[in-house]
Amino acid sequence: MGRYIIKKLLISIPVMFGIMLTTFFLLNVIPGDPIALMMKDHISVDVVARVRAQMHLDDPVFIRFFRFLGGALHGDFGISYKLNRPVSYLLATAFPNTLALALSAALVSWIIGIPAGILSAVKRYSLVDNFFMGFSVLGVSMPVFWTGLLFQYIFSLKLHLLPVAGFKGPLYLIMPAIVLGWSSAGTIARLTRSSLLEVMRNDYIRTARAKGLREIAVVVRHALKNSMLPVVTVMALQVSGLLSGAVITESVFGIPGVGRIAVNAIQNRDMPLLQGSVVLTTFLVIIGNLTADIVYSWLDPRIRYGNPEGKK
């Protein structure tokens, strides 16, 4: 088990390096001079050249990459061109907001999605099933900015129950978490349902019934654990996705998170900030996948002990 995790961690080092290399070079070839964007038109060519030299922007790209890499290893991603603050500081300020939003949205989607999926599977084709599946289609197909605005209109402007936007406390989190959570709850519910139905067709479910177990024990003890494997994968991807910035939700609800930083950085050609965001995102995705792997091996002993084919 421990060795399994260490192996996964070691594999993620070259992945991290590869991503940094790729983004660094890609960001270098996209058009648009950051200095020109940073300074206004009336600055002379001389000044621009001097600033470029000062920021080592004229050095060969490889040298700049290794300088970036060296800094990154120390948690130093440079100074944002636009905001004139250390990138690590900016990200460290925005990240807790994103984390709070992502975790609460994920929690909402699991608390709704998993039980809804289970009930739908157990009571297949019933009214309950149709209701939940309709609900999840709505969640998946309604764009977040639209549900966001709708919620703001109903719960803030009409009912005055919740603050419209901003981020000054837990109360501000409720609406965005529900809006964002609902959209992924649909996916989770459908996946839970189909996975559970699939697992319920297995021979060992018949064995469990033939033992004389109650149907609830058959579902909860024998089907659920097996059926969670694909769901866990999606849950992990979803959390890393949310953590790397739910851009639209952050914009609609005015939450100063990582997503907004990244979008602004792209618009301003703010290379250090953009590189920092990408590295952070990569790191989070790797952590998310690693968590999924760990949960996987906890759920399925065949992974824990190798031998996925189930052969002797």
Binding site: D203, Y204, R206, T207, K211, G212, N226, L299, D300, P301
Partner: peptide, 27 residues
């Protein structure tokens, strides 16, 4: 009824199946 037949399954009448590979729960 359900309860009655459950009390019989696995206690008075038990079954074994063709596929020992898939008849046991892997987890």
């Amino acid at each position: 009824d359900n309860k009655g037949i459950r009390a019989i399954r696995g206690r008075d009448i038990s079954m074994i199946f063709q596929e020992p590979m898939t008849s046991l729960n892997p987890v």
